[in-house]
């Protein structure tokens, strides 16, 4: 099958649209997660989402909206706990992380029958995204981008220096909760693409690669989004070429680029050092 024929396939069209929609979220939320040092928190929220997936299976409810509400609730609880017990942040994240997973597993155990689709939420399945999930993704994208644009100045100041932001009258506490809910919703739409276990890689690798060449937070968001799209499409191509799992291929592509980047930096530094020092 040639490329033109391939692009006529609905499943691939959906996959490409999903890649684009997820990349928008990934760029915005990934940048915010990295600059606010919320990577472990985002990991906790991602794994807690499994509780929402399990609940959806148990109730026979649509997975994305159910997981979205469940994960947002868990993120709010996590935010409230970490705000009041700052010295125990990592412990609390670990507890919520495990509790969400355990709840999801119990819900699945209590659900009659064998749930074939469950694996797609753990490891992603971008090739099976249905049309209504694309609309949910688009809706969440619009909300996340609109909120980020509207509150950009406050988010920028809060991310850089929360104490200063508070002294300027910025509602830092509310922004923090809003950010956690946005992370929760971003995670929920990303589990369709790479699965909740691999979400954290797609949130952190693009900003890592982008941050060295950007001078602004909005620039970091755009560059991270572009990297994310490159990884999604590249991963899809790898998955198609070698008949591999799409989620794992996307993350493997991102990791390969990351390793290439790091290697390039080491070689460049080595060349610079040897050029400077006389033989």
């Amino acid at each position: 099958m040639n490329l033109t024929d391939l692009l006529q396939q609905t499943f691939l069209q959906h996959a490409l649209i999903a890649s684009l929609l997820v990349s928008v979220t990934c760029g915005v939320i990934g940048a915010l997660v990295v600059v606010n040092r919320l990577i472990f928190m985002a990991g906790g929220i991602a794994h807690t989402a499994y509780g929402g997936v399990g609940l959806a299976f148990f109730l026979g409810a649509p997975v994305l909206p159910t997981a979205g509400i469940f994960t947002a609730g868990a993120a709010l609880i996590l935010g409230a706990l970490t705000q009041s017990k700052r010295e125990r942040t990592d412990t609390l994240i670990g507890v919520i992380w495990a509790a969400g997973m355990a709840f999801g597993i119990i819900m699945i155990n209590l659900t009659p029958g064998y749930n074939v689709g469950l694996m797609s939420y753990l490891f992603g399945s971008i090739l099976t995204v249905p049309t209504h999930d694309l609309w949910v993704m688009l809706g969440i994208d619009i909300v996340i981008v609109s909120l980020t644009m509207y509150f950009y100045r406050d988010i920028l100041s809060f991310s850089f220096d929360p104490d200063f932001a508070r002294s300027r009258g910025i509602p830092v506490r509310w922004l923090y909760f809003m950010l956690l809910i946005m992370v929760a919703e971003a995670v929920v739409i990303m589990i369709q693409v790479v699965g909740l276990i691999l979400v954290i890689a797609l949130l952190t690798l693009p900003p890592y690669l982008a941050e060295r060449h950007t001078k602004s937070l909005v620039g970091l968001m755009v560059a991270s989004g572009i990297w994310s799209l490159v990884f999604c499409i590249g991963g899809l191509a790898v998955a198609y070429q070698f008949d591999l799992s799409s989620g794992a291929s996307i993350i493997a592509t991102a990791c390969a680029v990351y390793l290439l980047f790091i290697s390039g930096q080491i070689v460049w530094q080595w060349l610079l050092t040897h050029r400077k020092s006389p033989a």
Partner: peptide, 9 residues
């Protein structure tokens, strides 16, 4: 300049 009032980036 951020004081929780001005908007946009």
């Amino acid at each position: 300049l951020a004081q929780g009032k001005r908007r946009g980036f």
